[in-house]
Design a protein around this nucleic acid. Sequence first.
DNA 1: ATACATTTAATGTAGAAACATCTATTAGCG
DNA 2: CGCTAATAGATGTTTCTACATTAAATGTAT
Lengths: 154, 154
Amino acid sequence: MSIETDIKQKKFRSPFQKLALNLMYTTKWLEYKQLESFKEYDITPQQYNVLRILRGQQGNPIKVSDITERMLDKSSNTSRLVDKLLAKNLAKRTSCESDRRAVDVVITEDGLALLQVLDPFIEDWENRFNIISEEEAEQISALLDKLRENENQA
Amino acid sequence: MSIETDIKQKKFRSPFQKLALNLMYTTKWLEYKQLESFKEYDITPQQYNVLRILRGQQGNPIKVSDITERMLDKSSNTSRLVDKLLAKNLAKRTSCESDRRAVDVVITEDGLALLQVLDPFIEDWENRFNIISEEEAEQISALLDKLRENENQA
DNA sequence: ATACATTTAATGTAGAAACATCTATTAGCG
DNA sequence: CGCTAATAGATGTTTCTACATTAAATGTAT
């Protein structure tokens, strides 16, 4: 369905305004789809994001602050997200020896197992993007990178 | 800055995964920029979205449920958003005569004045998109529309 | 070494989002 | 008409977010 229909707006000030609204609308829609898939596994997209970062470490511990750096949403409270994963036995937390302020976080077997269950959902979710070519995907990615570039504006 | 740098992930499973993450990351970034601009005017992006919908009615009242239909975030609680606007005298609420369950909402002079103040911020914000042509913007909008189309998947 | 600033993570708090429930009104149908 | 279902919007509740503050450990400069 077109963005015009979805938000019942017939005219836009410019193709740029339309794209801006479409980006926000489509992303919310994607996130909602993700949330729906995850619901029965009692995990939020944010918690999933942390889990995937932990898995990406291949068994090596990672500090809370380094998790934050890798998150899609930098303003999220990583401490409390890790708390949630701990409570569900999806991650372990040990104090870091070289810097006792820091805390090392590692994914558990349960965490890895859950990710394996979720992987097919994510793959299906990503397969939506197959309607465009890989080149187009790269091209849009490059454009999004550019959008965030000119920090001087706005 | 590239998405690779921003979320410190060197490799992606596919250009599609990269695009998915980039969409979510960039949209959060855009929303954050908007939030920042609006902060000194004590209005949230969601409230702004409602206000703009009200202005779009050109003085005609609109029901709460119709506002929801036009919102970017359909799951937001429009009742309470309207409450907030009322408290700030940015909108008026009168009960609808033809259907006494419904409620008519109209933007006030204060609301219109605030939007006029915010307009330049939004224009600057949208001008970020000038790095691409109008045709490209339309093209990407069309791709995003398509993404949301195949409801059968995922 | 001491004092002060910085970093790291946890916590407190107000407000917002997500979701279910409730109330009033209207619609539909026998 | 009288009954049940559907709709509109408000409200309750739990969880999450955004932002500020705190506490402990480390860095740094004199």
